[in-house]
């Protein structure tokens, strides 16, 4: 199999949500001398972008998106260690998590996947994340972006606590902050001093790309 065919196979593996194929073709790409970054950008990411478009058009639904994400991460696990350090260092770092008191993370995981596909180095803080973990990420992970989500009303104030914590420790101007989740809105983002709100993963990618 030649380079172009391998890239097409990686793309297809993501679109069909086939993790085993994604891992197999990622290894084959390396064996055949395809650059890891090319395999990611022109194979995995290309596939995930198509999946995102299909989801936006309601041709794909959550199960297919989750399987595609799983396939993409399978391939990434193989390829990322082979990216030259100089190239990895160029990537902007984002941290993402569900705020403290909330464990609904399916939306957060999809946003993480699409931001990864958009070229960011996303660090997943998980769910039920304490305020200080978000706040400290600017120093510990050199994050340029903080993405927070919640599905529940009582935990929305945790987002404000993060913004306030960043102001207090002097790091607020070093990051862009995006929020999402069913009860949130742009007016709420404005209220708490976040930079952006997104209604879905596609919009999140668009807004983050515009901002950083």
């Amino acid at each position: 199999m030649q380079g172009q065919d391998i890239l097409a196979s990686l793309e297809k593996a993501v679109i069909t949500g086939n993790k085993a194929d994604s891992v197999k073709f990622a290894k084959e790409a390396l064996d055949k001398g395809v650059k890891a970054l090319d395999a990611i950008d022109h194979g995995l990411v290309k596939g995930m972008t198509i999946v995102g478009d299909k989801y936006a058009k309601h041709e794909y639904f959550l199960p297919q998106v989750l399987l595609a994400a799983n396939a993409m991460y399978g391939g990434l696990d193989v390829l990322l260690p082979h990216i030259p350090k100089a190239d990895s260092d160029k990537k902007l770092v984002g941290v993402i998590g569900v705020v403290e008191g909330d464990v609904h993370d399916i939306g957060k995981n999809i946003v993480k996947t699409m931001l990864t596909a958009a070229g960011l180095d996303m660090h997943d803080l998980g769910k039920d994340v304490p305020v200080e973990n978000f706040v400290n990420s600017v120093k510990t992970a050199h994050a340029s972006l903080i993405a927070m989500s919640t599905l529940m009303t009582p935990t929305m104030d945790g987002m404000k606590a993060v913004v306030d914590g960043l102001i207090e420790n002097g790091d607020r101007m070093k990051v862009k902050i995006i929020i999402g989740g069913a009860p949130t809105s742009q007016p709420f983002a404005d209220d708490i001093g976040a930079d952006m709100h997104a209604i879905n993963a596609q919009e999140a990618v668009k807004k983050v790309k515009g901002a950083i």
Binding site: P63, Q64, L66, L67, N70, D105, I106
Partner: peptide, 11 residues
């Protein structure tokens, strides 16, 4: 968990 169930719908 929703994520597991949705993936297991296919797997």
């Amino acid at each position: 968990s929703a994520e597991k169930v949705f993936m297991d719908m296919y797997n």
